[in-house]
Amino acid sequence: MAFFEMAKTAIRTVVSRPATLMYPARPGKKTGLSRGHVVIDPSRCISCGMCMKKCPSEAICVEKDERIWRIDRLRCVVCNSCIEVCPVKCLRMDLQYSPALLSHSGLETFLITYVKPERPKKSETGENADA
């Protein structure tokens, strides 16, 4: 009996496709929800700093005066929390994971290009401007 058991396994192995995904030759599998890396749309960011406050690993830095949004890719734990708190939804999760780096240089800086629409003057945060 043991022989037939083995024969069954052997035949199945010969007939079926290999399980291997052949990763570099074929693109890696991704699903619609996969967390790859955070992308920002600098033209919509109102630099409210919510993402910076809620980031559990303090990877994000928003400097309002210099209009800079900065993320350290080597610190970001892709938890999706910044995307959930963003009031203007200018952040989104891209499916592509961030690539391997050859030096400790994960910092990426974006210049915020958002222009506040004309409104009666409101001080400081643009938090309520466009939410």
């Binding site: 570099p24 890719r73 080597l74 961030s98």
Partner: peptide, 15 residues
């Protein structure tokens, strides 16, 4: 080589 990701995906590790 620095491989980011939490947890790093097998694809990134292969890369």
């Amino acid at each position: 080589v620095y491989v980011p990701g939490c947890a790093a995906r097998p694809e990134s590790i292969i890369d």
